[in-house]
């Protein structure tokens, strides 16, 4: 018997006043897996994430996490169960230093739960977490105001905020977009390390090369529907995917 999936999505649909952003999407995710979610712009990837994390309520369908039905739950409750996400559009608190940006996730009841009722010294914890994602401690980058940081660091900050919550499932929405090759190369090891720690991860990416190297399985969305699923090779061979990416005539 195969282990029961960590996350199960069944028949999920979302309709934004006429726009069918997600249409009858079903998929499963087992513990420890890294799933790549790809698809052209506007294919509904972010909406799928919003549905899983409760920021948007589905029109139809069901989402279960560890066999618990979480459909329609408030986002903060879902986070407390152990699903954390990053946002595609990073919006840190620009006036605050980077490490102060970490205070809010560290204030989370989830953190309190995990540490047995204690929050501990949040500032120190924040600096540790930031170092983990590549804020060089010697250069005092963590003390700089978020407004003074380049995009690469803001994305890392976003990642650190998700890591702070110590989630079981992490959903990274276009973490690499807008970053240089070097920056991407420096973040990939962080993600590999997270996997070794046993985290289950969903990555949404346009950078297929980097994604395919680390993903176990790929799901392709187009116009809100799942058009292919499998290993990266299987997916790239699929006609439907070629058509979606290269246009109708391909």
């Amino acid at each position: 018997m195969s282990p029961s999936p960590l996350l199960r999505i069944f028949g999920l649909s979302k309709n934004f006043g006429g726009v069918q952003a997600i249409n009858d999407l079903s998929m499963e995710l087992v513990e420890g897996e890294l799933l790549g979610l790809i698809g052209p712009n506007g294919s509904g990837k972010t909406t799928a994430v919003n549905l899983i994390t409760g920021f948007v309520k589905p029109t139809e369908g069901e989402i279960t996490f560890r066999d618990r039905d979480i459909t329609g739950w408030a986002p903060y409750k879902i986070v407390r169960l152990g699903i954390a996400r990053t946002f595609q559009m990073v919006k840190p608190f620009y006036q605050l230093p980077a490490y102060k940006n970490m205070i809010i996730p560290l204030y989370s009841p989830r953190v309190k739960q995990m540490t047995g009722g204690k929050y501990g010294d949040r500032d120190a914890k924040a600096l540790d977490l930031l170092e983990e994602v590549g804020f060089e401690r010697d250069a005092f980058v963590a003390y700089k105001a978020a407004s003074a940081l380049p995009q690469g660091y803001l994305k890392r900050l976003e990642l650190a905020k998700a890591i702070a919550l110590n989630p079981d499932l992490m959903i990274l929405d276009e973490l690499f977009s807008g970053l240089s090759l070097a920056e991407v190369a420096s973040i990939v090891p962080i993600i590999e390390k997270l996997r070794q720690e046993g985290k289950t991860i969903i990555m949404i990416e346009h950078r297929l090369k980097e994604l395919f190297r680390i993903a176990d399985r790929i799901v392709v969305l187009n116009f809100g529907e799942k058009i292919a699923e499998g290993t990266s090779d299987e997916v790239m061979e699929s006609d439907a995917v070629k058509k979606a990416y290269l246009g109708a005539e391909a």
């Binding site: 809010i104 204030y107 989370s108 989830r110 919550l165």
Partner: peptide, 10 residues
């Protein structure tokens, strides 16, 4: 959104 996403009930 970002606060909500930290598991905090705004």
């Amino acid at each position: 959104r970002s606060v909500m996403n930290a598991g905090i009930n705004i």
